[in-house]
Amino acid sequence: MNIVVCLKQVPGTTEVKIDPKTNTLIRQGIKNIVNPFDTYALEEGVRLKERFTGKVTALSMGPPQAIEMLRDAISVGADDAILLSDVAFAGSDTWATAYTLGKAVEKIKTCDLVICGRQTIDGDTGQVGPELAEMLGVPFISYVSKVEEISSGVMCVHRMVEDGYETIEATLPAVITVVKEINTPRLPSLRGMTRAKSAQIPTWTAQDIGIEKEKAGLAGSATQVVKVFFPQRTHHAEMLKGDPETQVSALIEKLREAKLV
């Protein structure tokens, strides 16, 4: 079984700080990491390969630096990796991203299953997976929390829903997105790291995957960012002062006045 896992390199955003003087993101010291949700997708790909034999290809669209992330993917079990990188891809929205990934998957040809994380931590949209499935015209299952079985071209999975889980069947090829409950990603192995160091990771450009310029990047995006700003807050709380006893009784009084307790 040939599995493609989509990965995105993102800034470790929980550490994001804003420079109060310039009001911009402080990028120094922010390491780029693989989108945490994608690590579950990669691990599941490797586990499925181990269960049912096959091959795992890690696929990412991003800047040339993302190649290091793809090496890390090989060190935890991906067999090979492909980077989609081209200035023409800049400014892609989810539709253009899904379109580009879809073209790459078509070029890979023998793909039985595409696995994505449920969302990225920078964009937070969760749209690329479902849109990719439509681009490829294949079945789609989101929020997969367990792969029960894959046999004779049919996969059976658990899909997490708000009040439980569903058991769903789909024919392959298919696209799934996985939730973090599905597994615990492994750490790299020494042999994997050695293999990753010397691995040849091709970079495919728009031309390589047959994308016309008007369909890539910003030109191919239906949505456009027109304004980016920082949430401004000028309001300040009414501070309750004094020793703890005074503070607590003042608070209770306020809450009673407002009939909140």
Binding site: R186, L187, P188, S189, L190, R191, G192
Partner: peptide
């Protein structure tokens, strides 16, 4: 198991016996 999966048990074993 994590140590094994990361190949750390292979360190002192010669390569011909699946070590490093």
């Amino acid at each position: 198991k994590d140590l094994a999966d990361s190949d750390l048990f292979r360190i002192i074993i010669p390569e011909k016996y699946d070590g490093l």
